[in-house]
Amino acid sequence: MYEEPYRWIEAVGNRRQYLDEQFTKGAPVMACAYADGILMLTASRGTPKLYEIYDRIALGGMGHPADLEKLRFSLLEMAHIEGFNRSPSDVTGARLMKYGLAPAIKQAFEEIYKAPFIVKILLAELGTRPERDLFLTINYDGTFEESRRWAALGATAAVQAQMGRYLDAQAGFEQAPLKQAVETALCAWAVGSLAQVAAGAAEAEEPPGPRSVETAASDASTFPDKASLLAHVQQIATEKSLECILLERSGPGSSKYRALRPDELGGLLPSGIRAGSPA
């Protein structure tokens, strides 16, 4: 039935709709530069969503854990073989994205008889100098983007843009010390998380109507104040655990990745927020 072109386009359209729905309840991922490197954070339940890929590369993901795991393994394999055969400095986020992730995700997305990868992935790469830090994000259909200073994963492109807009409004966040940077990043994360909640509520009120997820999210031109953003984080932290990892430019040894332990993260969080869920 897919031989006819328009059938195929229709099938791909259905697939997009199906995939978009898969992410509406997922936790966003926020990554940004700070004074000593890069930090990435999210909230997760059970399986972690932030991982170490190579000496200077970290991964954050949204979506199905099994798909994420499969892609994570292929990235790890590619990075380590390359790092061994050539050198660790030849393992770059851009190459992993262009020759590793993107072709695999795009192919799975377009092979409409097979299941697509239900994932969105963010790669953060710590440069030797701050201006060389790089962020790459890839959508479930294989389109990827490069950015500087920050990157975000959210249910829709609009949510991601909104998280970034909030961060851009916080002047000089990339020079902030860790504690301050964690707070700012959490607020940006909460902007995304709240936008997804709002979009979900709007969807529930008037299903398939003209007011889609996209428009609901992009409507909000002003952001909630910091107190309500942090209150949202606090509420999320009662059911999920907050995860935060760092790529530290001056960290010891060649591996710059470090996951903050819950107690360490707890000490960095604004008062009233717990890093781990009580469970």
Binding site: P48, Y51, E52, I53, Y54, L76, H80, G83, F84
Partner: peptide
């Protein structure tokens, strides 16, 4: 040393 270094890192990163 190169093999060992990559082996230990690969193990840590895959097996968490």
């Amino acid at each position: 040393v190169r093999v060992l270094e990559h082996s230990f890192k690969y193990y840590r990163r895959t097996q968490l």
